[in-house]
């Protein structure tokens, strides 16, 4: 198991209140030094908020990105998620993502604005991921990805939990179809791309993360 995955497991344990004081203190030190760990910490809290129904759409940056969705989309989405049956295939080596609803501590080293930014982004990704995901429901590649996602993520929040804060990669990974169209667009966009190689650099760099 690589170190990142191991860390995420520990963070999950911390969120669940399963770590003793010494281990918790050690991990909190790591959180302050490691962006990836801090992001994982935020994901677990976000997941918990979603499970408890504390998370609402409409705030933050979501408004612009879900223009195409009807007003009761989130209500219906929650209802659907509540009904979702997840196969109980949980390999022992994977983190147990059960959230302890009583754990309230905020990451003391995370300023509030960063938390809000990530939460807002994750909700955008959740909606966007589902929106596009529904387009490609029959896609075998995507289905494979979803099964894998279900195995490590709490029931009902797979869209949130697979979305890595800080980038749009999760959406791309979940929909190879959209990924392909974006790549095709970038290929054609070489035609102008601001009429300069800097546009090409932008496209190649941006594209780099979508594979």
């Amino acid at each position: 198991m690589d170190r990142t995955l191991e860390n995420r497991e520990l963070i999950s344990d911390l969120a669940d209140g399963w770590l003793d004081d010494a281990d918790a203190a050690k991990l909190l030190d790591q959180l302050s030094a490691d962006d990836d760990a801090a992001v994982s910490w935020e994901i677990y809290h976000l997941s918990r908020d979603v499970l408890r129904g504390d998370w609402s759409v409409g705030a933050d940056a979501t408004a612009g990105a879900v223009n195409g969705l009807s007003a009761d989309f989130m209500v219906r989405l929650r209802a659907r998620l509540a009904e979702e049956q997840i196969e109980p295939v949980l390999p022992e080596s994977l983190p147990q993502p059960v959230m302890a609803p009583t754990f309230q501590a905020e990451a003391a080293n995370q300023p509030l604005f960063r938390w809000r930014m990530v939460a807002g982004l994750a909700s955008v990704l959740a909606v966007a991921g589902l929106g596009w995901g529904l387009l490609g429901q029959q896609d075998p590649a995507r289905q494979g990805g979803q099964i894998a996602a279900n195995a490590v993520i709490p029931a009902g929040v797979q869209a949130v939990a697979v979305s890595l804060p800080g980038d749009e990669r999760a959406v791309m990974l979940r929909d190879p179809r959209l990924d392909e169209l974006l790549a095709a667009h970038k290929q054609a966009a070489g035609a102008s791309a601001l009429q300069m190689p800097a546009g090409f650099l932008r496209n190649a760099t941006f594209e780099g993360a979508s594979r």
Partner: peptide
Amino acid sequence: SDGLATVSLFIEPYDRQPHAADEVQLS
């Protein structure tokens, strides 16, 4: 293209894949 920005239209038959909504937007 308008000289700086580029727009691609990808057109395909509607029934090729199932679609949950008639319009989906992503940024």
